[in-house]
Design a protein around this nucleic acid. Sequence first.
RNA 1: GUGGCUGUAGCUCAAUUGGUUAGAGCGCCAGGUUGUGGCCCUGGAGGCCGGGGGUUCAAGUCCCCUCAGUCACCCCA
Length: 421
Amino acid sequence: MLNTVKGVKDVFDSDLELFRFIENTFVKISQKFGYSEIRTPIIEYTELFKRGIGETTDIVEKEMFTMADSKGRTISLRPENTAGVVRAYIEHGLFNNAGLSKFFYIGPMFRRERPQAGRLRQFHQIGCEVFGANSAMLDAEVIIYAAQLLENLKIASANFEIQISSVGCENCRPQYNKKLVDYLTAEKNKLCETCNIRIYKNPLRVLDCKEERCQSVIVAAPKIIENLCDDCNIFFEELQGFLKIANIDYQINKRLVRGLDYYTGTVFEFVCKEGLGAQNTILAGGRYNNLVKQLGGPHTPAVGWAAGIERLILALTNNKSDIKNIENPVKKIFIVIDKTIKKQGFEIFCNLRNNGIDINCDYECKSFKSQFRLANKLKYRYVLILGEEEAKNENIKLKDFDCGCETIIKLSELTTKLKNL
RNA sequence: GUGGCUGUAGCUCAAUUGGUUAGAGCGCCAGGUUGUGGCCCUGGAGGCCGGGGGUUCAAGUCCCCUCAGUCACCCCA
């Protein structure tokens, strides 16, 4: 039997309802916050991700789906969307537009990882990117925007924690990096194997290690947040002030590290407290002031975040009572047609639909019993009955399943009667 | 990429120490008189027991490989 590719999923029925609920909610809030949608291609030249995300990151090093096109250039399925949006921003000269560029996006991303709870090879993200301002006020707004999204998705704030930090800028990060590497090198025999490699490859990530033996070293390690330059310190203080004004509860996580190279300054994560297993970050992002320039555009400060739709679904199906808030369209009219008068039946069916009535039937004109059973199973409330008698008398019977009562309606009055139900 | 657990009808699961035509519940389809749902009865369809190889007189059951799912590591949304 043919089945789906490993780590990907078909989405339908109630899962799809949840997808739509999240996407629709996100679009609504995005408009409120002044964001406009951008849709970039799912494939990009591999080089974009190498230069954007960082050549030594795990994502680029071993998780991308990459293939050669017929002319020998390599293209990859996007593993995230920031690089693509930045590329579009530069390619279309959007930096010439007045004011900020505020984008939101929705779409599939691809990463070749071993699937597990909250982690798929094709997963879906919603996210945003804002270009053109280096401002703590903006960073605060971006976090408020995310918090409001979760609130509207009915994910209780008690269920997640907002962690913030700063990873410094081009002025303070190199100095800190050196300090950290010196410290880690001195303590290297206390560290686990992978961390010993990390010291040289990506020292910041050591701080994120969960190995027992590394913990004592990590606790005493110099923290970037305590080694920021004046500008970064002021910026981070300012951000916290704005968050307080907006009544956003947050925690400073001194060990917060993002896995993508492009982050500078503010970073944050929304971490779910329970129910998501090991993959408990539902939303994450930060500032990346150098990426636009690095990819060939003018120096343009920027900030953004992304959230995994599948993880949001896990988070919101945790407290099941809240899912009821998703409105289901009420199914109303089902028409039962006698098989001897299919033609009249089909004509009435089409007319009603053309007149804006939501109507369904079984298309096979099976036994009345069977048609009624189907209408009931599909949760219709009203059933129109078109039998030989009704057809002869130019009328039709309407049955209300709720009360079981039936009324006869003249065909000429049918549409208006149904509209008033 | 590494490790643990799992893999029997559409779904949730049974199947004694290896032993005949692999079962149940739910779901699906049909019928329970002549044109009527929900409850209830009756009947029916539907399984290469994930795939391949091996041990055995005999394998859903034991062994190996493989694929998939799942959880964790790792990484990240």
